[in-house]
């Protein structure tokens, strides 16, 4: 067993992971703390939220890593940290062998061309006063990728790639449906020829009949452009469908990580199992035992000691109240952070 997470994980192991040639994105013990006010007379105790608490993951070239968690799990923060849209409190991000944390502003901006993000809400993430051509073309201008006729051709090509007609260029976002707006958001992300996309709940706001269109589009684009995805979502079925590997996050930590098959057919962590059993599904209706989790996600300002899942865990033992479980990797790379149900 080799520890791949937690503050006490051995540095050389992590470094060797970073050296793996097939990993495009590697995070090592990544942390983000947010100030959450202060407590006590004269504010003697500063409160912090550990939104991301020592996350070490790698994403191989051309793969989709699904990242699942409920609200407050830190999944969106992790996505933004990897792009350095927010600055980490600690840890490292390595992109294609380059350590992002040491890059200056100008170099980072250059590199950002290679890593883009698609947001959840296709209504809020497009400027309503800009025409689609200006929205999709902004990145091309900023990075000076094309001008004039060449830029125009590129815009038409981008729209075609996401399934929109060229006449969309002169229209405004409000003239499009939710699904079409998400296509515009994807075209904008692709405009600078990225290699890596963070997809932050890209289909959660869409109608069921439209969701599948966008999921298929994302898969086609990945094949065609050799893209690498971090797919963040709370919908376990969508993640299962699109991801090769899946990470489950709870209160800032990865609690389980493995291939789709390992996670969905042989979940180990009690939280993963409860999560999977809570998804209402057509296939399983009335056929299975639901694992009921008592209570809700505890406040991340004051997380429980030991394993942060223990107050809701049906299998918690004494050790769970004391020691923080490390994410340990077992057979076939299936990693679990649980002292009662360790990796297989």
């Amino acid at each position: 067993m080799c520890p791949v997470s937690g503050s006490d994980s051995a540095a050389p192991k992590v470094a060797s992971a970073a050296a793996r040639s097939d990993a495009l994105v590697v995070t090592e013990d990544l942390r983000k703390e947010f100030a959450a006010g202060s407590e006590g007379l004269l504010a003697r105790r500063k409160l912090t939220v550990k939104a991301v608490d020592g996350v070490s993951i790698e994403i191989a070239r051309g793969e989709t890593l699904g990242l699942v968690g409920e609200s407050g799990s830190g999944k969106s923060t992790l996505g933004r940290l990897i792009l350095r849209l927010i600055e980490p409190t600690g840890g490292r991000i390595v992109f294609d062998g380059r350590d992002l944390s040491s890059l200056g502003r100008a170099r980072m901006r250059q590199l950002r061309r290679e890593m883009q993000i698609v947001f959840q809400d296709p209504y809020a993430s497009l400027n309503p006063r800009m025409r689609v051509g200006a929205i999709v073309g902004e990145g091309i201008d900023i990075h000076k990728l094309a001008r004039g006729r060449e830029k125009q051709d590129r815009l038409v090509e981008l729209l075609r790639m996401v399934g929109l007609d060229a006449d969309a260029l002169t229209r405004y976002p409000h003239e499009f449906s939710g699904g079409q707006r998400q296509r515009i958001g994807i075209a904008r992300a692709l405009s600078v020829n990225p290699r890596f996309l963070v997809l932050d709940e890209p289909v959660s706001a869409l109608d069921v009949s439209i969701q599948a269109q966008i999921i298929n589009l994302l898969q086609d684009l990945q094949d065609r452009l050799k893209l690498t995805y971090l797919f963040i979502a709370h919908d376990l079925r969508v993640v299962e469908h699109i991801s090769r590997r899946v990470a489950i996050m709870y209160l800032g930590k990865i609690v389980e990580l493995g291939t789709s098959d390992q996670i969905y057919s042989n979940p180990r962590h009690p939280y993963t199992r409860a999560l999977l059993s809570a998804v209402p599904s057509i296939d399983a209706a009335g056929k299975r035992e639901r694992i009921r989790l008592p209570g809700e996600l505890p406040s991340p300002v004051d997380p429980p000691a030991g394993c942060s899942f223990h107050p809701r865990c049906p299998h918690a033992k004494d050790v769970c109240r004391k020691a923080v479980p490390a994410l340990e990797s077992g057979a076939g790379g299936h990693a679990v952070a649980c002292q009662v149900f360790p990796a297989p």
Partner: peptide, 20 residues
């Protein structure tokens, strides 16, 4: 048909074309 998970993993989803 368009819901993921209702017919095997990694199967291409049968999307409904067009818009509402």
């Amino acid at each position: 048909q368009s819901i993921p998970g209702a017919g095997g993993r990694h199967r291409r989803l049968q999307a409904i074309p067009g818009t509402i």
